[in-house]
Design a protein around this nucleic acid. Structure first.
Length: 160
DNA sequence: GCCAACGTTGGC
DNA sequence: GCCAACGTTGGC
């Protein structure tokens, strides 16, 4: 049985919530709410642990890519927006006694000295298996291997 | 803005 | 359980 994944990539659309937004948040931390994909939820619920390192990826923007590092900052807990009728993430089918959607808190750790663009990732043979470079990859919460993590940091100009 | 790829829904 | 229709994602 494979060990649980310990390193992650989170996608965010910067016009919605950028790495700068996270950096300027209280305690540089936010609830990673609104995830409504079961695979992504399962990673947060079943595998993420406080302290796990995160690559913070900007999608749907001029230059998609990894812009910063973050970390998991809580154990999993129910996403409160699923029970908020005024939220666009409201899910009337979720039972408060058995919540459908779980999340973790995410804390910004550092901005990267240079952005590792999607083009950079695609151009690095050693990253050919990374989920984010696969055609049609839409998963917003992805595991990253330790080897991939080190290579991305190398491309970013960060010492191991 | 386009559109391919993907996940979910719902009729049957 | 199949699969067409639909809505969303996300690079380009």
């Amino acid at each position: 049985m494979p060990a649980r994944p310990t390193h992650w990539l989170l996608k965010s659309e910067p016009h919605v919530f950028s790495f700068d937004d996270l950096w300027s948040a209280k305690k540089r931390t936010t609830m990673w709410d609104g995830v409504r994909n079961y695979q992504a939820r399962n990673f947060m619920r079943d595998s993420m642990r406080p302290g796990d390192p995160i690559l913070y990826y900007h999608s749907s923007c001029d230059v998609p890519g990894v812009v910063g590092l973050a970390e998991v900052a809580s154990d999993p807990y129910p996403d409160p927006t699923q029970f908020d009728a005024s939220s666009k993430y409201h899910d009337s089918g979720s039972d408060p006694n058995d919540p459908r959607w779980m999340l973790v808190d995410v804390r910004a750790v550092r901005r990267l000295p240079r952005v590792v663009t999607l083009a950079d990732l695609k151009g690095e043979r050693r990253l050919a298996k990374m989920a984010v470079v696969q055609k049609g990859s839409r998963l917003s919460v992805q595991p990253v291997t330790e080897a991939q993590w080190r290579i991305v940091l190398e491309l970013a100009g960060v010492d191991g």
